[in-house]
C-alpha cells in the first residue's frame, strides 16, 4: 500500500503542495479558475508546518486503526478497505470535530462553508485519476515521496 512520505530535509516551505492539493480538489481543477472563482471554498487537505528553518507538510497517515474513525459519531469517517485509506463523507459529517481533536497528527481540518460545518482530510487523491497525489507531483524539490509503506523494524 502506497503512502505519502516527507523528507523534511528538503521541504523548502513554498506551500505549493497546499496550492495543488486545493486545486486538485476544486470544482474546476484549473489553478486560475479555482483561485478566481472558488477561492473561499479552496481548503488544502495538508498543511505545511514550520519551525524555522525546518518545515514539512502534514497530511493524514491513513492509519489502519484510526482514532478519527473510532471517534466519529455520524459514520462520516470510515476506513475504506478497498482503497486502504480513511475517507470522510461531508454529507454525513455533523461538524462535531471529534476527529479533529482525536487525530494524533493534526491532519484533519475543520471547515465552515455556507453555514455548514464539516471536516476534510487527505484522500491521497484516490478518485482523481492522477498518477500520484497532486501534492507529490507538485513538490519542486522532491521532498514529498509516494511509495510503498515500509514495515517498521
Amino acid at each position: 500500500m502506497k503512502k505519502i512520505y516527507v523528507n523534511e530535509e528538503y521541504c523548502i516551505n513554498c506551500h505549493l503542495c497546499e496550492v495543488y492539493c486545493a486545486v486538485a480538489h476544486s470544482e474546476s481543477k484549473d489553478i486560475l479558475k479555482a483561485y478566481k472563482r472558488e477561492k473561499e471554498r479552496l481548503v488544502p487537505r495538508l498543511v505545511v508546518e514550520m519551525a524555522n528553518p525546518a518545515s514539512l507538510p502534514v497530511q493524514c497517515r491513513q492509519c489502519e486503526d484510526p482514532p478519527c474513525v473510532e471517534g466519529c459519531i455520524s459514520g462520516a469517517l470510515v476506513y475504506d478497505l478497498t482503497a486502504n485509506i480513511v475517507t470522510s463523507n461531508p454529507d454525513r459529517c455533523v461538524g462535531c470535530w471529534t476527529c479533529v481533536a482525536s487525530c494524533p497528527f493534526g491532519a484533519i481540518h475543520p471547515v465552515c462553508l455556507d453555514g455548514l460545518k464539516f471536516s476534510i482530510k487527505c484522500d491521497l487523491c484516490f478518485d482523481l485519476e492522477l498518477e500520484m497525489p497532486a501534492c507529490v507531483a507538485a513538490c519542486p524539490n522532491g521532498a514529498l515521496i509516494y511509495e510503498e509503506e515500509q514495515e517498521w523494524q
Partner: peptide, 12 residues
Amino acid sequence: DRCIVCRACERQ
C-alpha cells in the same frame, strides 16, 4: 490576473 496570492514568491 494570474497572481493567486499563494505567497510562494515571498517565502522564496
